[in-house]
Design a protein around this nucleic acid. Sequence first.
RNA 1: GCGGGCGUGGCGGAAUUGGCAGACGCGCCGGAUUUAGGAUCCGGUGGGCAACCGUGCAGGUUCAAGUCCUGUCGCCCGCACCA
Length: 824
Amino acid sequence: MNKKYEAQAIEAKWQQKWEEEKTFKVTEDPDKEKYYLLEMFPYPSGNLHMGHVRNYSIGDVVARFKRMKGYNVLHPMGWDSFGLPAENAAIKNQVHPVKWTLSNMENMRRQLKSLGISYDWDREVASCLPDYYKFTQWHFLQLYKHGLAYKKKAAVNWCPSCKTVLANEQVVDGACERCHSEVEKKNLSQWFFKITDYAQRLLDDLDKLPGWPSKVKTMQENWIGRSTGVEIDFKLENSDKTISVFTTRPDTVYGVTFMVFAPEHPIVEELVKGTEYEDDVKAFQKKMQSLSTVDRTSGDLEKEGMFIGKYVINPLNGDRVQLWITNYVIMDYGTGAVMGVPTHDQRDFEFAKKYGIDMKVVIAPEDNPDLKVEDMAEAFVDEGILVDSDRFNGINNKKAIEAIADYLEETKLGRRVVNFRLRDWLISRQRYWGAPIPIVYCDHCGTVPVPEEQLPVLLPTDVEFTAGGDSPLKTSESFMDTTCPICGGHAVREVDTMDTFVCSSWYFLRYTDPKNAEEAFNREVSDYWMNVDQYIGGVEHAILHLMYARFFQKVFYDLGLSKSDEPFRNLLTQGMVLMGGSKMSKSLGNVVSPEAIIDKYGADTARLFILFAAPPEKDLEWNDAAVEGCYRFLNRIWRLVLANSDIEGDAYQVSDLTKEDKDVRRKIHSTIKKVSEDINDRFNFNTAISAIMELNNTLVAYAENEKKNNALLKEGLEAVTVLLSPFAPHICEELWQLTGHKVAIVDSPWPEYDKDALSVDEVEIVLQVNGKLKGKVMAPAGLDRGGLEDFIKDEDMFKTLTDGKNVIKIVCVPNKLVNIVIKG
RNA sequence: GCGGGCGUGGCGGAAUUGGCAGACGCGCCGGAUUUAGGAUCCGGUGGGCAACCGUGCAGGUUCAAGUCCUGUCGCCCGCACCA
């Protein structure tokens, strides 16, 4: 057969067939082992980029492979379709966000289909549609009901450009992670989810996730930031009040010479009220407030502070301790107050030096028991022995941490506590394009949750998109004015919408039961599919999305909605697609459009390149010439298979095969083994593809062989086509059909390798002298150590190499190598 | 500062358990075919004339090290005045 490889025509043909026949539609089937494969759903920005192509190509190889392996594969796709860009587009172009979003979805759906990814499109979800966000709101109500959603006034992160508050996780280096504007602090009343209640479990259960990259687990660990220490109560001088501080170093407590508060600590105002310090303190607070978050939290910031005129008493030694305020203490960690031990903490050291505060050594190095303050150029923070610490003198400081903690608990002067860096999740957004928070404020009854049967709280359409700082929902009278579900009196609606990360924290469960109008997801159905067996996406979601989704899943588990307390069993974080060493971006002008590549070479080439150029978790450099190379490879396969499409021969007897035939047969079966293992165990698609290329090279040569065995060649051609099909599904399906197969490749079983075909009669033995390669010798396969040594001693090459030499030792590794150790 | 990762030809990368370094592909060189170009096919391609030398650098363990250990340099990522 002589036919040109026309990628676009072939791809359109098979994509249409898959769509019409709903090839990838799945339903729960208790008789089949399920496999839930999920790629992170995209934000419908308008166009697919190469990062998407990479993400979904990786997923599709696994999905198609598992399907051929006989699994009941759930492979869904949808849209994370609430969010700011839609609203910005609305302001800029006077298009309603829903219109903008839906048309983007349509375009990207078309682009995804042109890649030939094996999705069950009947399960498509879009988080911006009422049938979805109805349940996002329902989840909010469950959290509210169980005390996990609450409203409080707090200093929150405000992005002046996006005109909304941000969660801590969305602030990167003091700037908005979206638009990179400097984030301001604002005192606002906002809704939070109590993720801190789950801090310990979110931390502990990372151990349940051996299939996650340790990098991601470490990042989450750091973000949760558990630290153990003690809270110590210091009595305020001439008062009944006590002030508690958190410390991880109770062993230094005898060295406390001052105490510092965060400037915004509420007690400060109380302490200085009516004193000579009041005005200065207020000025200092104002100055700190005007600092941006970036400057405020930067480690290089000059330490500043002031004495506020009061003292506390050290509960252990009765020392009188000055009270200060400073810029280096953070209000929302620990108690917002810190004990100052300049000799054994570098920050306190710098602060005390600057302001001339007393210092007192309480830990000395073992080799210098008389350490003097005057000799110190920096704080002594290494291990040492306690001095000047009363009953604890002479104890190693590591042991003293426990001893002093015990003593504090016995005397009720303090207690062991655990602190987390993790803060509650701020979910209010002063924006339109999100799920409305289902809460009303009644003139009489106060904060009232919307009854479940009244969901969804629909987004109104009569809204003005003049971004002002308040939610645009406030401009809709029809939305705002409502009645109280309890008393029927006048009430107004909550005008903030939810952070879009709320929507994406449960979408993987919705896929299991996407059409359910009564429930977010049916327990029985979702239990069949959960957990997600393999989740694939960018590492940029390591903290935000992956932490929030874990939190939600744990809540669902606790509320009896799901059997699982972790959502994603295995996680693969793919690398970025780079061009010229940096991430493809419009501003850098280094974007390669997937559509252009598909138009030029076809989807199979695009997929093949992106999978071949680098292992999935590494960054990938785009290379036009290498794309061309992949296209050439597909053409070579095409020509090879079609050139031999009419060969005769159905079966062969292994005993009839020549040595050369057997080598080809071994190559076929070792390739089946390698490709299967590379896909299934290691996600090493690049080496799987290179193995297929090798097999192709072998078969090209074998096809030219006059004495070839036709049935064997046919076996090889079928193997190469099937093995390549998860990577380049369209061309393989076409070749399969052109070579007379009635059942499509997608419905064919994945091949099993024949163990016997891998066996060899003879092996090449590497001959080394003192570890250096000297030559190679053929030997019978399967010789043990002794047998190999006997065999090699009869070889001429051995005799030449050892002639007249002092042979100390011969190391034999069966089937591999012989190393002759020679001295002198 | 703390935590994690990575350094291999001109390039992307391979070497799965300590056992032939550089698979596969790109690029490059030469040849065939072609009026020419493209496409295709064949051969070559780490360095060195060679002995040999080669996986960031310096040591170590081992019969044998890209792989293990110690130190060091460089790059990337995460967290960071978190008490």
